[in-house]
Design a protein around this nucleic acid. Sequence first.
DNA 1: TCATAATGTGGGGAATTGTGGGTAATAGTG
DNA 2: CACTATTACCCACAATTCCCCACATTATGA
Lengths: 152, 152
Amino acid sequence: MFRGAAAVSLDEKGRLAIPAKYRKSLLLDCDGQMVCTIDIKQPCLLLYPLPQWQIIEQKLTTLSSMNPAERRLQRLLLGHAEDCQMDKNGRILIAPTLRQHADLSKKIMIIGQLNKFELWSESAWHEQITADMAAEQADDLALSERLQDFSL
Amino acid sequence: MFRGAAAVSLDEKGRLAIPAKYRKSLLLDCDGQMVCTIDIKQPCLLLYPLPQWQIIEQKLTTLSSMNPAERRLQRLLLGHAEDCQMDKNGRILIAPTLRQHADLSKKIMIIGQLNKFELWSESAWHEQITADMAAEQADDLALSERLQDFSL
DNA sequence: TCATAATGTGGGGAATTGTGGGTAATAGTG
DNA sequence: CACTATTACCCACAATTCCCCACATTATGA
């Protein structure tokens, strides 16, 4: 399970160094093989260890190709999925198309989110967090059923 | 179960010495491994022994990444979660991002709250207590259902 | 009151990690 | 088939982090 945020940077070759604390478990789990795709709701990328991605892929196959919304989800996620292999120095190469989708330049944030990572441009990440905090302050009502009883 | 408040201080490297009375049980429970994240409603940090945090994380996995409010909670909590390992002297390092969120400078309060600790800047803590006391005096109404039957 | 232990605080230095680029291999293109 | 562009691998330096030790300060008990 991944957690935490870290600032990383893309070098001139488009390589991104995975923070060292994640490397061991990635090598162990999937020999450094990962899959990167776009997020549908936010301007960020999703980075899955291969086994985790395969679970997602499995779920996607159960969706109907008749239902337009489900078909769309398949097309977006699968269509943008790229294999990424960690090199010996613990870096991965992000394809230009993907880089563009999340508007990634030099300064990137990599965010652990349980079974995957999110990749954000630093500025977009900060904006998102600011917006999220504001939203949390605002609506004490309108909580989903699941959230009503969430205790920390 | 943790309880009580203690004044502690951050040194120049951002290290915080855990009060000695908690150390033994922390070493026993989780070998000094803890997770620190932000509080969503208050300007303070939450510090969990690893096993306690894993319970929270477990709950977070059940939330949907399609529902915006649930996704937001994941992003805020997990995105700010940092592993903290107690060193030989019983100190933990608080990441700069987190320090900033709770406006922590040198003088800190560490508050035992059952399954976790809260970390407050000393001044914010006193303000919060004052405000809480005032609020209790004021509204005898507006108690939640659970509080109606609470006996001390 | 003093001695001893336990806790709090500070800082030096080694090991790990981040970063940049050179070169070889591979694939893609005309 | 040759040429170019991209990708992978490797090495080396810079920077940071973390680990450990030593001293100061406070608490405890004789």
